[in-house]
Design a protein around this nucleic acid. Sequence first.
RNA 1: GCCCCAGUAGCUCAAAGGAUAGAGCACCGGACUUCUAAUCCGUAGGUUGGGGGUUCGAGUCCCUCCUGGGGUGCCA
Length: 590
Amino acid sequence: MQSLTQHLTTLLSDTFAAAGYDRSYGEVVVSNRPDLGQFQCNGALPAAKAYGQKPRDIAQQIVERLPQSADIFADISLAGPGFINLTLTDAFLGQWLQTMADNPRLGVAAVTTPQRVVVDYGGANVAKPMHVGHLRAGIIGESIKRLFRFMGDDVIGDVHLGDWGTQMGMIIVELAHRHPDWPYFDTDNTGPFPAESPITLTDLEEVYPAASARAKSDPTVMEAARQATMELQNGHPGYRALWQHFVDVSVAGLREDYGALDIHFDLWLGESDANDHVEEMIARLQAQGYTSESQGALIMDISLPDDNEPMPPLILRKSDGAVMYGTTDLATIDLRVQELRAQLILYVVDHRQQQHFKQVFRAAYKSGITPPQVGLEHNYFGTMNGKDGKPFKTRAGGVMKLKDLIQLVIEAALARMAESHVADEYEEAERLEIARRVGLAALKYADLMNQRTKDYIFDLDRFSSFEGRTGPYLLYTTVRARSILTKAAAQGLEPGALLPPTVDAERTLLLQLAQLPDALRMAYETRMPNHMADYIYTLANEFNRFYNACHILSATDTAVQSSWLGITQLFARVSELVLMLLGIEIPERM
RNA sequence: GCCCCAGUAGCUCAAAGGAUAGAGCACCGGACUUCUAAUCCGUAGGUUGGGGGUUCGAGUCCCUCCUGGGGUGCCA
């Protein structure tokens, strides 16, 4: 099923073609002048240049060739230098929305050739608690994953933990410093080692910053950390055993944190999972002549003749023998292509990694690890800045923990509920669940509404705001629609066939509902959930206008009433779908 | 130094080269004996950082300058 604008575009394209012009001029978009028409086609203006004619003359020819009967268009007009303004008949609009309502996918066509897509969007690191800086990757990545899945692709979400770099060595060295008596540090000991972790998550949250600080301030500690990292990667039994403990402990905590955000991964792999593949891959790259030695390191040149900036080589193996994340990322791509049969890999990672991914992607294509038809994309997002415009530190301490932030928004939601007394008589458990969903909706929507690629200001007030353009507004509106349907059902009233709209608020709501496929397609093509966030806010706003203008349950005309219930149901279905795609849970009532 | 990104209402953000640059917050004024007022309606708020250029048409594309942020071979 085509979207409404696609349908109209086809119609206009045919008309342009019939008049002897290229089809491409027939694109129809929603009008930015609703006072003049519901849709517009601007094709006559560029066509005028290509064909050496006056734009108004071309537009006039198109207008004359369009079906003048009242079947589709109530009004076709020519304005300004050559804009074609289109307004649909209410009958056609009502009929179109009925078709959408009858469609299980709400008129959203699935992709014709589904692809195996890997979305790499976790970004969390072992041994570090999740903080506010981890929000975006999880929230945006989860939404992209859900959208791709809904569009019909075969999607695998991978958290891809940071579990193999120098930080691991730092922790090992720090623990060796504190507990030299632990069996993991006895070089003669090859195991077995204790099954019980010697360290808890709480311990790690204190150990990591301490380890990081000590390594940074003391070069010999840093050197020891590098050495430990190399030994870990090369299979030092004690280090491996200890490392496995803190990975397990961390992953248990991370599962909880992501679970609390309703973010779920299909794979809990990390950098370390590519390690067994690294040697083979490096050997292959060496044999194929892609590598060279430089300053003791094994590197791969990935510069191109027309680069307008110095492009550093990808360092496959450091001079100390350890590998960095560029190497594990490359090996991970190899595994994803070979074993997961990935056709498209999306990296939802912040924009500071742009050069890194440029390097890795170049290496992947150059070496043939990635065949040309497989897509590698860095769908980067902007950093969260403080009110001073400076980014939050992702490495050093002092940043608000994710758990604290979540707790804070839930408490704000509870306060808001107490204020309006709506939930006073609800059971405690339900009240808490509503607060959880409302708080998380506020948090997630405040993030998703921002354009993915841009930085934005982290402002607690925004995350605990429940009025206007917020997540809770969307929940409230959806719950309100559901509530009407429930009340109607209790009176024996069911949603029925959609009639042509008669009220302005109703008409604009239908037009907005009809844009669902376009909004999803835009978000899908650009991998930007904010297009869905924009859409659903506008839609909810139109529903609330409709709600205020048309009192459904007291409507006297039963056919109109059942049509309005039909519209309400369609709105609820669309809203539930889009909120699901944004990763936002809706309460039963609020 | 070089390379990316951003600069739009008091604040936070929108605006596939199209007509009169739009929302939310905050401010001011209206609408609940009626389906949940976490709602709706209205007023006000702008030489889109400066300057040049391309175009029938520029917030959007090009050049240049200013400001801020990020990246820039052995952290991630």
